[in-house]
Each structure stands twice: as structure tokens, then as C-alpha cells.
Amino acid sequence: MIKVNDLHKSFGKLDVLNGIDEHIRPGEVVVVIGPSGSGKSTFLRCLNLLEKPNKGEIYVDDELINAPKVDVNKVRQKMGMVFQHFNLFPHLTVMENITLAPVKLKKMTKEQAQEKGEELLKIVGLSDKADSYPVQLSGGQKQRIAIARSLAMEPEIMLFDEPTSALDPEMVGEVLDVMKNLAKSGMTMVVVTHEMGFAREVATRVVFMDGGVVLESGTPEEIFDHPQNERTKLFLSKVL
């Protein structure tokens, strides 16, 4: 579904990604872990080209997406993204946040989008908030709306960039629950997170990154219980 070959990215003189090869298959829930500054978020942001890679190839459904003539917007419609800071549109109501993209991109009529929106709000457990503005919601609620907003475009892949890092501890659970259900429904997901419990429970594969490269990748048991790489061991000894 997503295939990445020798991905490099640098910001000025700072090399953030130093050659990443990954293959994400349909239905996989890949959780990317690693210390701060290891390039996890940059890797995720390269996948939908919010960052432009300097070198390497990214294939989505066998299409090379970082080629010059690709319609980036079309590619992005296949990939939902959830951000650390939610990035809800503060000037729109919850329902408008959800329906904006599908309607403007002519994917659905207004009525269809509304219907879809109600369905999604039910899934994330916020049916009563359709007419609220983002400022009236708690952090956890905002993030659940952000997930619903991404799902409204009916993406094939969902990317999560530290979705619970900006939340108060008591709100982390409600967001993770939504993500767990999403994983159960068979959605292909790539999740950058510090929630090791979530990684262990939900991931089909855990990827450990450091220094802009993937150092180790395997099932949660392999990574958490029998890490091979010294840096993985060191990292896990600090966070677990």
C-alpha cells in the first residue's frame, strides 16, 4: 500500500531522515516509536508530502507520489492525517469542520456529507457536539473530531502524528479508544506515538527509529520483550 525506498530529508544542514525503507501493507497498524528528534514525525509528514523528501521514492498504491507531475491533492485525499495540535478550523462548527473537504472537493453532496458526519460523530461519541465550535470542546473531544474530519474523506490510510501528546492525561484514553476501534475495523494506520501501551496492544508492527533511520522493526512482542538493537533496549529501558 505504501512503499518507501531510501527516503532522505534534511532541513538546511540538518539531516533528519537518512535513508528509510518501509513497506506498509493494507490493514497494518504500524506504530513508530523513538526518541525526540529521531525523525518519526518527519517520516510521517513525508508520506503525504507535507514535507518534500530530498531523495528517495514513496509509492502509494504503486503510484510514485513524489514525482513532479503527480496530483498531490488527489494522493492526499487517500490519506487522512491527525495532528498533535488537532488543527481544527476554529471558525467552523464541528459539523462544518467535517463536511468542508468532502463537499468542496465534490466527493459528496452537502446532504450526503451531513449524513456521513452524523455517522462519524456517533462513532467518536460526540453526536451532541455537531453545532459546537472547536473552542467549546476539550482537548480529547477536539482530537476525536479531528479524527472524524479525516475519516469523512473516506481515506484508505490514516496517519497519526503524536495524537495524544498535547492532551491532559485523563483525555488520552478516549482518543486511544477511538483509534483502537478504527484499527479493529481494518483501517491501515501509521501512528507516531509515545503511548507504549497502545503500541503493545494495537500495533501489528512496531518500528523503532533513531537518528533518521529505522533501527528495528517487528511485532510488539519482538520489540518490547526481545529487542535486538542496543539503542532500542536503551530507549525502552527509559520509557517503560
Binding site: 503525504n48 507535507l50 491533492n73 488527489k74 492526499r76 485525499q77 490519506m79 487522512g80 492525517m81 495532528f83 495540535h85 488543527n87 481544527l88 478550523f89 468542508l100 473537504a101 468542496k104 472537493l105 479531528a146 474530519r149 479525516s150 474523506m153
Partner: peptide
């Protein structure tokens, strides 16, 4: 982040 959210949804 607002621009990124918009673009990530596929808006031009």
C-alpha cells in the same frame, strides 16, 4: 497547522 490540516484533507 491550519494550512497543513486543509492540505492534508486534499484541498488545494
Amino acid at each position: 497547522g491550519q494550512t497543513e490540516a486543509g492540505r492534508s484533507l486534499g484541498l488545494t
